[in-house]
Design a protein around this nucleic acid. Sequence first.
DNA 1: AAATCAATTGAACATGTATTCATATGATAA
DNA 2: TTATCATATGAATACATGTTCAATTGATTT
Lengths: 119, 119
Amino acid sequence: MAEKDICEIVYVHEDEVNKIKSKMLEDEFLFEVSDNFKVFGDSTRLKILYALSQKDLCVCDLAAVLDMSQSAISHQLRVLRSKNLVKFRKEGKMACYFLADEHVVAMIELGVEHTKEKL
Amino acid sequence: MAEKDICEIVYVHEDEVNKIKSKMLEDEFLFEVSDNFKVFGDSTRLKILYALSQKDLCVCDLAAVLDMSQSAISHQLRVLRSKNLVKFRKEGKMACYFLADEHVVAMIELGVEHTKEKL
DNA sequence: AAATCAATTGAACATGTATTCATATGATAA
DNA sequence: TTATCATATGAATACATGTTCAATTGATTT
């Protein structure tokens, strides 16, 4: 909640505020955007995505590459699937995961580039 | 920790795993990348950044635009400052915030585009 | 100087979320 | 069928994080 009672009405630059408010995107939409960013905001998921950008991999290989438990990887793959960032095909008893599309690669690359530049 | 003791050594595609491992970026670096994504992964911060992409704004105006307490905004601005995404100049008793550089805009736009495309 | 105001800060609280552990599922091999 | 293996899942735990509340700082105004 806001505390606009006294504060905002008095001193706020009302016209400016309204102008910006009208330019803002829908709350719901911006929430979705941030929610999409959030998926890349965990190092385990990012590592999974980066590894998959090199080659399609099954769960156990991903676990070996990241040196983490298969359960932890599986849980994160679930998140990545739910956000449509990865897909998988069944090969016998194994599940071979791969990136859903090039947008994912583009996103990773942008993140990597920006991080490199700032150091 | 991993549980490679029995599992990985036996069945994992060792050569493939090592190949990907060698292609992986430094753990520390990927952690940093995900940490950068994380900043965009909160809707309050994203809204602040989006609002600032329209116009430089003081804290109280940001609070009015987002309809949130000035304290909450201030806390998030602190995070954004620490990540060098925003800067500010003092104007009397007010603090006028603005985006640090065009990279921030580029990032927001990519997020917005990708989110739009997926619906 | 005293009062007021924008902004910051720290502590408390509530909520999210990543990992582990134990177990279940579903497929292959014996 | 039974045993084994890869993966998935649910519950529990531990930790991170966003917001609020109260108090403080630093600047302006009276």
